[in-house]
Design a protein around this nucleic acid. Sequence first.
DNA 1: GCGACAG
DNA 2: ATCTTGTCGC
Length: 215
Amino acid sequence: MERNEILEEFFIDLQKAIRRILKVERRLRLEELKNLVSVDAAYRGRFMAVAAVKWSLMKGEVLDEKTMICEPPYPYVPGLLFLREGPPMLKLIKEFDDWQLLLVDAHGILHPRRMGLAVFLGFILDKPAIGLAKSLLVGEEEPGESFGRVFVEGEVLGYWFKPRGSRKFYVSPGYMVGVDQIPKIISILGSRYPEALRRADMLSKKVLRDLAKQS
DNA sequence: GCGACAG
DNA sequence: ATCTTGTCGC
């Protein structure tokens, strides 16, 4: 599928409109956090694979997995990732129940219109969500050793974190989560790149390998 | 106009 | 994101 200027302008307007009505009335209650869902996508040739993993924080293990292979609905455009990865991810996440927080391999409000993929998914699902990305789309990082805030126009919209021995990543609220809750959430997730997301990443790549193997 | 730009 | 071998080091 090729890019479409009219469509992109429309979805940018939609992002701005949704942003205007978003409110922080309900917030994730961290003491009730038991199960997570994480989602990631991988690409190969003309296909993409999306994997969603339900993860138990207490047991530290996978409770359930879902995958799907499809052709990307839209090309990658910085700021409009939700057009590309949102539709298949929603399809999978809706199949899970009994979870309290969604982990997305993308930005949340750390986005030009504060409407990253993690915000969009949380909003559509009406569930708490956060975004975790490996590179910055917008914002200035506070200097530091392994942890710091990320500012956009003087406002704290997220945090950067660099675990010992692994690469830096950025965390920002998606939906029903306050920026002030991010440090505590990172701590609850083990102060490292979340295992639940790592599993979704590995799984999405695996289904594409298996697809290439049999064909 | 130029550069930057989640996955 | 993905294309990709060997190589440095715990």
